[in-house]
């Protein structure tokens, strides 16, 4: 496992600083408190979604996990999507319902009745790869184009959920919420005291120290 780029950086440490306003605190608090149980999806759909999302954005052991299934469920429950659909695609909720069902059916057909969630990472990735490359289709999918479902729905929705989570911001060294406080030092190689410090080679300890004072 590679070492974190921004060791000890926690964007949540800025929660009570001028970098976060009340509206932001409310929104992120709510996101972090998303119930970890199906509310829109069925239990079966949830278990496929959880395993599936885990392959789209694999979790790291050393970082706080991002509960993708819960976040996806919340997004579908609220029906907070981009609104439009491609002419040959259903709207978001229906696309996910049908897509998850088809993935599960594909898994069962290919792996002797085993559910998608029970497959090895490699088998799951192989199935997803086939979907991404246009190698899936047929009876399980009806008129839903699997490749289009993957590109227009999965790759639009899931990464957006992951990179809306503070844990992901920590990982990539994003400054996170910034209001009313913005930034003074606008150059990239020039960080404000409330920005993530990077562990450049030989300066890991200093980065860790700086990141403790990111407030």
């Amino acid at each position: 496992m590679t070492k974190p780029r921004y060791p000890g950086y926690d964007v949540l440490a800025k929660r009570n600083t001028p970098s976060w306003d009340e509206a932001t605190r409310k929104v992120v608090d709510k996101r972090l408190a998303t119930p970890d149980r199906p509310r829109f999806l069925t239990r079966d759909e949830w278990s496929v979604a959880a395993a599936f999302c885990e392959r789209i954005l694999p979790q790291r052991e050393d970082a706080a996990p991002v509960p993708l299934a819960a976040l996806l469920d919340a997004k579908l429950l609220a029906d907070h999507g981009d609104g439009f659909r491609d002419a040959d695609m259903p709207y978001m909720r229906e696309a996910w319902r049908r897509g998850l069902a088809a993935i599960e059916a594909e898994a069962k057909t290919r792996h002797g009745g085993r559910s998608f969630a029970s497959l090895s990472d490699e088998d799951q990735d192989r199935l997803i790869g086939a979907m991404a490359d246009g190698g899936l289709g047929g009876e399980h999918w009806g008129d839903l184009d699997p490749q289009k479902f993957f590109k227009r729905r999965v790759l639009v929705d899931v990464p957006g959920l992951f990179y809306s989570h503070p844990s992901a911001w920590n990982e990539i060294g994003f400054g996170g919420p910034a209001s009313p406080r913005g930034y003074v030092r606008l150059d990239g190689d020039h960080r404000d005291a409330w920005e993530a410090a990077e562990a450049t080679p030989g300066h890991e300890k200093k980065a860790e120290r700086d990141n403790r004072h990111v407030v």
Partner: peptide, 14 residues
């Protein structure tokens, strides 16, 4: 400036 004196760490410089 945004945040006024409460945001002094930015605004003293900005």
């Amino acid at each position: 400036n945004m945040g006024g004196w409460r945001n002094w760490r930015q605004n003293l410089f900005a």
